[in-house]
Amino acid sequence: LADYWKCTSCNEMNPPLPSHCNRCWALRE
């Protein structure tokens, strides 16, 4: 979970790649 990032649109936790959210497809900010 070290490099995971949280989507600013839906708060889904996503892996470093790809740089878009797996749930709502918003790009990582």
Rank of each mutant, 00 (worst) to 15 (best):
C21Y: 00
L17C: 10
P16K: 02
W25Y: 15
P15S: 07
S19C: 04
H20T: 06
P18D: 11
L17W: 07
S19H: 12
E29C: 08
S19M: 06
S19Y: 10
A26C: 04
N11E: 03
S9W: 06
R23T: 06
C21S: 01
C10G: 00
L17K: 13
R28E: 06
N22M: 11
P18I: 09
H20W: 07
P18E: 14
A26D: 11
S9V: 15
C24W: 00
C21D: 01
R23V: 05
L17S: 12
C10Y: 10
E29G: 10
L17M: 09
P16V: 02
P15H: 12
L27V: 10
H20N: 09
C24R: 00
N14K: 07
A26G: 10
P16T: 03
L17E: 15
P18R: 14
Y4H: 10
N22P: 09
W25Q: 15
P16A: 05
R28D: 11
N11G: 05
W25C: 14
W25F: 11
S19E: 14
P16G: 05
P18L: 12
P18A: 14
L17F: 02
N22C: 08
L27N: 09
R28H: 10
P18Q: 14
P18K: 13
C7M: 02
P18Y: 09
Y4V: 06
R23S: 07
H20E: 03
Y4W: 00
S19R: 10
A26F: 02
A26T: 12
W25D: 15
R28W: 02
L27G: 12
R23F: 04
R28M: 05
A26N: 06
H20Y: 07
C21L: 00
P16S: 04
C24T: 01
A26V: 06
P15N: 11
R28V: 04
N22Q: 14
N22A: 13
N14V: 14
L1W: 11
C24K: 00
P18W: 07
N11W: 04
N22D: 09
L27P: 13
R28G: 08
T8N: 01
S19A: 08
L27R: 11
P18C: 12
C24G: 01
C21W: 01
S9G: 06
P15V: 06
L17Q: 10
N22L: 11
L1S: 14
K6Q: 02
N22E: 13
P15D: 03
R28Y: 05
P16C: 00
S19K: 10
E29Q: 14
P15W: 03
L17T: 08
C24A: 00
R23W: 03
L17Y: 05
L27A: 12
C21A: 02
P15C: 02
H20M: 03
P15K: 00
H20S: 11
W25V: 12
W25K: 15
M13I: 05
W25T: 13
P16Q: 05
A26I: 06
L27Q: 12
E29S: 07
N22V: 09
L17R: 09
C21R: 01
C24D: 02
A2L: 05
N22S: 09
W25R: 15
R23Y: 04
R23K: 11
L27T: 12
P16N: 00
R23C: 04
H20A: 05
C24P: 00
C24N: 03
S19W: 08
R23Q: 09
H20R: 12
E29R: 13
R23P: 02
L17D: 10
A26Q: 09
